[in-house]
Simulated assay, not measured.
Amino acid sequence: MYTKIIALCLASSFILAGCSKSSDNDLPADEEQVITDISYGSHAQQKMDVHLPAERNTQTPVVIFLHGGGFVAGDKAEVNAYMRLFLDRGYAVVNANYRLVDSTGLSQTPVLHQESAIKISDQLNDIRSITDKVAASVASWKVSGSKWLLAGHSAGATLALLYAHGNKNSDKRIKVVANIAGATSFAFSDESEAALVPPLLLEVLFRATGVPATNPNKLAYMAISPYWVSNNSSNAVAAINIRPEQDSGDDLYRAYTQLLISRSVVNQYLIITGAGHSLDPDSKKAEAVVAIDAFARAAL
């Protein structure tokens, strides 16, 4: 099923890092700028950094990037390498944190079973708040208000797909979505499949959805599956899906690709050869960003 993919998503760091703060008042467009820890909500995790390229203007595209961490962990500081790569290719980059599903007791044996106040639906609401904040700021940042790309790594990529192809993007602010090593489906045909999932992963999915993986709850698991959200949505946007060669899930990625083709959605499926889930060394990240840039420039 999707066990190996989720396990890789959960492999991201659980450590949060802080950043200093700056102001975005009167930013000269001819200079590179970084504004850190901009709040887009009242929660401590609702913060984002903005990296603005030199010589930017109202045609400068914007990429909103979401870190990984299996929905329960991770921080924007962990994906700074992607920020530099996009910045060097002329993008304004929004590197965003989002509220995390509760990770309490996940490292215990046995795994602690409890509900989480934050679920994937809340994380998708955070992305909406991020886009609202960006929309309110593009004039002062001196960047495009319409050429927007949503990208992410691992669980962040899954969230990006869910948002871009879901009803929260009905205003079509997001024109292109980029999935780097994200899961494309958590759905199951029968609850007996849950017996094959390690307890840690099963608990994360329970906390992320709020319901156990049983037959009466199939729709809840389809609702956090990009494949099924894309299948049922009229808001699908151009998508590039990138799988590190050492990740499992080729069959799921190919099924997702065929779905997008059947729905006449512009898309690309790319395998980064020799790469593991984290796309180390940075040359592998650069390969992914070059492909995303070429795809996005053609689609925007």
Rank of each mutant, 00 (worst) to 15 (best):
M1S: 13
M1G: 13
M1Q: 08
M1T: 13
I5G: 14
A7M: 10
L10D: 02
L10R: 09
S12W: 13
S13Y: 06
L16V: 14
A17E: 13
C19W: 11
S22H: 12
D24F: 07
D24W: 09
L27W: 05
P28T: 07
Q33L: 07
V34Q: 14
I35E: 00
I35V: 15
I35D: 04
D37N: 15
H43C: 05
Q45K: 11
Q46W: 00
K47Q: 14
M48K: 04
D49M: 00
V50R: 07
A54T: 02
T58N: 05
F65Q: 05
F65N: 06
L66P: 11
A73T: 05
G74D: 05
K76D: 09
A77D: 14
E78Q: 15
A81N: 13
M83S: 13
F86H: 05
R89T: 10
A92L: 12
V93W: 00
V94W: 06
L100V: 06
L100C: 03
D102E: 14
T104I: 02
P110H: 08
L112H: 12
I118W: 10
I118L: 09
K119V: 03
D122G: 00
D122V: 04
N125W: 02
D126S: 10
R128D: 14
A135Q: 13
A135G: 12
A136K: 12
A136V: 01
A139Q: 15
W141E: 05
W148S: 02
L149I: 14
L150C: 07
H153G: 14
S154V: 05
G156T: 00
G156M: 08
A157E: 03
A160C: 11
A160E: 09
L161D: 09
S170E: 11
D171R: 13
K172M: 08
R173V: 07
A178I: 01
G182M: 00
S189H: 07
S192T: 10
L196S: 14
L196K: 15
V197D: 08
P199I: 08
L200R: 15
L200P: 06
L202C: 04
R207E: 01
T214M: 10
P216R: 02
L219H: 10
L219K: 15
A220P: 02
A220I: 01
Y221Q: 04
A223Y: 02
P226T: 02
S233E: 00
P244H: 06
P244K: 03
Q246C: 00
S248Q: 13
G249Q: 03
R254L: 14
R254T: 12
T257E: 15
Q258M: 11
Q258T: 00
I261F: 03
R263W: 06
V265M: 07
N267I: 03
L270N: 03
I271K: 12
I272L: 14
T273I: 04
S283W: 05
K284I: 02
K285A: 09
A286D: 15
E287W: 06
V289N: 11
A294M: 08
F295D: 06
L300D: 01
L300C: 05
